[in-house]
Nucleic acid binder design. Structure first.
Lengths: 225, 225
DNA sequence: GGTCGGCGTGAAGAACCCGTAGCGAAGCCG
DNA sequence: CGGCTTCGCTACGGGTTCTTCACGCCGACC
């Protein structure tokens, strides 16, 4: 469950926020002062902060800065102030968004979803293919065998990537040639022989007893992880 | 240099945007239709998109969805529509922020900074990178070898920073050239040769037995800490 | 058993790319 | 204005990769 910290000095608004957010499946903690907000952000480690700027004890930008000193949690600022200078100050202090009152609940929920979506999409796990001692990191374009990097040329790597991203499938000569060399090379299947050979050598595979690249005579090749 | 894609159907606004953004050091590309926007986002790979919703050809949320199908680039929506339903639709389609016209330039710039900051803080890389005797302090723009500072020119430093903040990854010629020289230099890979040479000399690396910058022939370079 | 096509293998020339030195131009300082 | 630094750009030698060829092997088919 997603934890949201709501900071507002008016109990009435805190209650309204809590009701709306909980109705949409969020777990809510509310506090009424800036000091409490900093403490709650630290010990609760919420996944999002909704911060009202009209706090009695601390200036809003100070709250943002102090939270930012230890956390990257998304902060959405709610405020009655519509002056441009206020928005710039809050955003540059580290806020992620600035919504001016009066606002609709739906808008705040949408901005909240946008902020949370950004956060989690920040780290899409890079596809690393693993086959025994062989690792192919497509994101870094890095290939290792038993932990030590293997140097592949441009063409060798393109061919390997075509294989590992289509593991198990039968890849015809035509298809591979087009994928690696481009259109107009569909007939040059001897290129494949040369580069499959090169890959097998560098990756420690042998044609007579293949563990990685299987020859399908007359048709193509198949990657058997 | 940070590349921003501005999408607006009114030439006057496009010009104004370009002027403001370029004055703040951004590299700007402008387009006038939704179709162009999707194409430009794909081939230009900008670091941020400013999208006006009143486009003649496509619905704004469609533009957002189509860009989102291949890219996570931050999208800030500008619109005359202040209705809550419009904001919710745009944000849920994948927009990162929604600003209602009329808006101030300073506010847009602040929201732009906030979006870019979020972007890069996704990977909390330590401010000081260490590789044996080499230290690169990205925050202070300071480089030392064995404790003594090394003087790097602007271009040399930009290149080094691109390397150390992407250690391990294979960086293509195109990517490096765009990052350091800006876009429009994607073909000038001889610049890279010259500046990689310069870096290697100042950092005590040699091309024949590289400990820092590895050449990947025909593709690019790789920082191997 | 012989022939033939497809595949694996090694090697060599061609094409391409990189490292390196250096020159003129532009910008920056006093 | 004059020296210095930095940048853009070119040229050339050397190294790597790509392409191409030749040969041996194996299975299929006649």
């Amino acid at each position: 469950m997603t934890r949201v910290l709501v900071v507002d000095d008016e109990p009435q608004i805190r209650r309204a926020m809590r009701t709306s957010l909980e109705a949409h499946g969020y777990e809510v903690r509310t506090v009424g002062t800036g000091e409490e907000a900093v403490v709650a952000a630290a010990e609760d480690d919420p996944e999002l902060v909704l911060l009202d700027l009209g706090l009695p004890d601390l200036d809003g930008t100070d709250v943002i800065r102090r939270v930012r000193s230890f956390s990257e949690v998304p902060i959405i600022v709610l405020s009655v102030r519509d002056r441009q200078a206020d928005k710039v100050a809050a955003l540059d202090a580290g806020a992620d968004d600035y919504v001016t009152k009066p606002f609709g609940v739906e808008e705040v929920l949408a901005r909240l979803r946008a902020a949370l979506r950004r956060r989690q999409s920040g780290e899409p796990s890079p596809p690393v293919h693993r086959f025994g001692e062989l690792e192919v990191d497509v994101g870094r374009r890095l290939v290792t065998v038993s932990g030590s990097p293997v140097h592949l040329t441009k063409t060798e790597y393109a061919l390997l990537e075509a294989f590992v991203t289509n593991a198990g499938k039968l890849l015809t000569h035509q298809w591979l040639l087009r994928k690696v060399w481009g259109h107009g090379y569909a007939e040059e299947s001897h290129y494949l022989r040369v580069y499959v050979r090169s890959l097998r050598r560098k990756l420690g595979d042998e044609a007579s007893a293949p563990r990685l690249i299987l020859t399908e005579p007359g048709v193509g090749y198949r990657w058997i992880g």
